[in-house]
Design a binder for these strands. Structure first.
Lengths: 224, 224
DNA sequence: AAAGAAAGCCCCGTTTCCGGGGCTTTTTAT
DNA sequence: ATAAAAAGCCCCGGAAACGGGGCTTTCTTT
């Protein structure tokens, strides 16, 4: 068990007071979390890190007159090798390029300003998720949204049943078709919408369902 | 392919004008759907069925002076054996007993009045789901809600990651623990909350998340 | 200090899922 | 009438998930 009970010392570096306030407001009530310092430029950040050795460092991508990414190598230089804080880039514009740039600079992850407080906590709590794994980037979401246009009615029906938590076998029973057919449909759905599993589909569906042109209630063609 | 393009003839039997209006309002705009007749008692229903041979029959469970269930055997008696309409019992009070009683009476399914219009369409569209398969009954939901109290913090964390669509492998990477451990946690979660798969958990979670005491944002113990 | 809970780890057998392919029949549109 | 699209079916191999067990280490609590 690698549970860690000590307070997580955190430093925030951003030159927008409003953002600083927002981040602080989110983090302050969290048990086990301690905001150590707030700085507004790179020089102050480096100095603060030397002084406090925080566990979490949040850096805005677009500081005045300097770029957040470039600070990361400097941090690594000026600190002992056995000191490995979790460094996150905070950005208002988020895409795959931004993410890869952050990671190549040595950041632990890249966090969009457009996420909710809850997601923000999640992102810091599980840094590995943010870095190496699926980031629901706007681009990926757009691919899936437009991919819906490629879906047939039957495929949309099956998505409805998948999102109700049913297995391929049960869906097949429900529709009076072969399990093979259901799995063929699932394969086609995954191919069109770039999913790798039913759970990915579920998670995405519920995160986006209010914006999806999927509500097939006006179409009763596939009644059986 | 057993797609059926002909209009689905429907008869509704209920003695509450408000309910009749509500059901009609939901069904009327649906393409491929035709409300044939509306009746307010069993005798009229039997007569209407003889006349129109509808595809879908909706019967209120609590008609004035008669019981909806009892009409079903009479319908079966008075119609040829090759005529198999989908008969649904509509009820305001819904539990496992109600469902089994409806099914034993010969109904295709049992529909609660407390569901949304969207769910109503789904229920009629996929009759098999309603009958033989998981009905999210209030009892089942209550088991799961109270089961949450039995979950440990680590299990709640893992639920968060599951509901983001991640595989056991990725969750393990994210938490720096063995895949075996993740699957042990999943097994314990499923046992405590009576699930059979991750997709079931996902579907349930998103249907109930606003009421669940799961938001672990005030707890940072398991930071890694 | 001892007991119990929580977390972590492992093996096994079975089922389901995923991805790749190929194929026929029905429906729809030109 | 014909072509294209949609729906349905099947096989295979590998990966993942599921359910059952057992077992150790690390907290936490009394």
């Amino acid at each position: 068990m690698n549970t860690q009970k000590a307070l997580l010392k955190t430093i925030i570096c951003d030159d927008h007071p409003l953002v600083l306030e927002g981040l602080s407001a989110i983090l302050l009530p969290i048990k086990g979390f301690e905001i150590q310092t707030i700085v507004q430029n790179g020089a102050d950040l480096l100095q603060a890190i030397q002084l406090h050795h925080p566990d979490v460092i949040l850096i805005d991508a677009h500081l005045k007159n300097e770029i957040g990414f470039d600070l990361i190598p400097k941090i690594k230089e000026q600190t002992p090798t056995n000191y490995n804080p979790n460094i996150f880039i905070i950005t208002s514009y988020m895409d795959d390029y931004m993410v890869s740039k952050a990671l190549h600079s040595g950041a632990t992850g890249c966090i969009s300003k457009s996420i909710t407080g809850e997601e923000f906590i999640q992102a810091i709590k599980f840094p590995k998720l943010n870095s190496s794994l699926t980031i629901p980037s706007n681009i990926q979401t757009e691919i899936k949204r437009s991919g819906i246009a490629l879906l047939t009615q039957r495929e949309k029906d099956i998505i409805q049943l998948i999102t109700q938590g049913h297995s391929s076998k049960k869906i097949a029973e429900c529709l009076n078709i072969s399990t093979f057919t259901v799995e063929t449909h699932k394969k086609n759905i995954y191919r069109k919408l770039k999913f790798n599993s039913a759970t990915e589909l579920l998670a995405w569906y519920f995160a986006n369902k209010d914006f999806l042109p999927l509500n097939a209630n006006d179409n009763f063609d596939s009644y059986n």
